[in-house]
Design a protein around this nucleic acid. Structure first.
Lengths: 354, 354
DNA sequence: TTGAAAGCGATACCAA
DNA sequence: TTGGTATCGCTTTCAA
């Protein structure tokens, strides 16, 4: 009558139940799974086979983790909401790199937002054994919680005292890009910047200068400095009115900013964009306004996401090794003792827009 | 001398320690976090405040989960390796939709590969409370493990007996696309298909027909059927030699297949591609071969990923609501009782390539 | 090589 | 409204 009268009613199997069924102690079963050297190969094989037959898939992670304090899960703490990271080409490539390595290492990846309210009344942060922190979290307090855990941490695209960090050469790349453009246009006409998150007004909580070393030196700031320095080198300057800000590297924001920038009088001869997404949006706006690229307008991006490569015309941009950055971050967090903090090189890729 | 002589050596705080410090019972602390109605508001506020001060961030998830059997984590089981899902525009949009909803629900998302070996000797599958299964897992055995958990499951892009499923109208969309193209080219010249995972030779393990309903009816098969039926309606047929297969929806595979297809004699007048990525690769090959699109060659894709929209010329394709699919899957898995299995509509978006 | 037993941190029942 | 306590499933000494 009961819907459970199939084969075996089969309630949840536990290590203890298996031990009883096989007539051995729980320690032996545990050893079969965790320390093969503690028992004979024969016995172990037998036990594993029986477990399979009985439908026991191995130790319950919660119980094991409670006992050992480890889960085998790597936390990837993201700066913002999760969804953003599935929209942004650069973040997506980074996560691809991370997931490749973690997948190979049979390690699970838990994505965690960098917002304080997510952790309210729950210490989720205690689940992972180690952390990759991708970009400075929006709420500083999550960093504090995380540090209290005393677990290995690798920060990416920013630095934190006493932790491994992985950065790319934003300044160098941006300077190359700006130099390239400025050389082309000589000193004619103004140059505008389409920036990304230059204003971090939505960071909540006090910034502890001593610990969050680069809070004021965000990657966008580094790029902006480089643009400015390059301009100065060419005897020019980029006035504040020609610096646009976007909150997110997406199409809509890029279109909006580019439209404004290209309506300025006199019209800019070049657009230095802090991401390829923004550059591609700008390219599209130029097309709409019948501004020819690169003759009347030069555009450079940043990141070198796959779309930039395939765009027509191809976007001139600064390559950063996003996938490699992800792979390396994962390797670093799995073996912190084998690595030191690093700055990865960037590289100008000249294509058709500048 | 010790490196720990900072402020307070502060060892890990536990509920019990807090209870002792405040002179109340552990049950009261627990209630303060989990059942506000079980104690006075005053006491609760006081407790929460003190916890904050003492550096106690709330109950340890491992212990709680051991006790309650729940974690508040949603597992997203992916068909293949994790990395693929960060490469494919369609998968990325799906995950974006999922993450939006889970993020809002303050629920964590654990990404899990659909390969058997990942779970070897560890019942990771017991961590999540509920599952979204995106595409038929490569190894059927993980489905078995998962079902043993008796947890809510929503399958996406395939169906499973006794579980909620979410599909899109692959047949209808593909038929519209093929009809559109066939109408344009009349009955002149051959039509080729660039297929995606038509051959599932790498599925490991027996397929239990009774349970995995659509094993033989993969989304690719549905699309292929539609192409064929459309051809038949137009008094044509698509010969097997004009059906190419790719393993993954990526640029390289697409280029390779398109190059072969466009070298066939007589050259196809139309390419029915099972993804936009493949269609865009084909477009690029056509450009290289100086074949003009759409005059000499019509191309249609599938999915309508953002890149397809922005491509020049714009890709004619079948829109499927990927983000919405993700959102809906997440909502369904969080509230299974409020939903039924669904098939979402697709829609032909005519742009410039056909 | 195996077994007995303590305890990881929290919850939820039942009493008070 | 609060407290005492058995229990969740497992790991790991220590002894046999």
């Amino acid at each position: 009558m009961n819907k459970n009268d199939k084969k075996t009613p089969k309630k949840r199997m536990t290590l203890k139940a298996v031990a009883e069924a096989l007539g051995v102690s729980t320690a032996t079963i545990s050893n079969a799974f965790n320390r093969p050297d503690q028992l004979s190969a024969n016995l172990r094989d037998h036990i594993l086979k029986e477990c399979e037959r009985l439908g026991y898939n191995g130790p319950n992670p919660a119980a094991r983790s409670l006992r050992t304090g480890a889960t085998g899960i790597v936390g990837v703490m993201l700066a913002e909401r999760l969804a953003y990271n599935f929209r942004d080409g650069c973040a997506t490539e980074f996560l691809q790199g991370v997931s490749e390595v973690l997948d190979d290492a049979r390690t699970n990846m838990l994505l965690m937002p960098g917002r304080d309210d997510f952790y309210h009344l729950q210490s989720m942060e205690s689940i992972p054994d180690r952390y990759i922190v991708y970009g400075p979290p929006r709420d500083i307090s999550v960093i504090e919680r995380l540090e209290r855990q005393q677990k290995p941490v690798v920060t990416v695209d920013f630095s934190l005292k006493n932790h491994l960090s992985l950065n790319v050469d934003n300044y160098g790349g941006a300077k190359q890009a700006a130099n390239h453009v400025l050389k082309q246009i000589g000193s004619q006409g103004p140059v505008a910047v389409i920036g990304l998150r230059l204003i971090q007004s939505d960071i909540i909580g006090r910034i502890r200068e001593t610990e969050l070393l680069d809070a004021g030196v965000s990657i966008s700031r580094q790029r902006l400095e480089a643009y400015r320095d390059a301009a100065a080198d060419h005897g020019m300057q980029i006035p504040e009115e020609l610096i646009w800000n976007t909150h997110e590297s997406n199409w809509a924001d890029g279109v909006k900013a580019a439209r404004e920038a290209l309506s300025a009088i006199p019209r800019p001869r070049a657009l230095l964009c802090m991401s390829d997404q923004l550059a591609m949006a700008a390219l599209s706006v130029a097309r709409d306004m019948s501004i020819s690229v690169p003759d009347q307008l030069r555009i450079v991006g940043f990141d070198d996401i796959p779309e930039a490569r395939r765009s027509h015309p191809g976007i001139t941009t600064v390559y950063q090794p996003s996938i490699e950055k992800g792979r390396l971050a994962a390797m670093m967090v799995l073996n912190p003792e084998r690595f030191e903090s690093r700055v990865l090189p960037t590289q100008l890729h000249v294509r058709e827009t500048a």
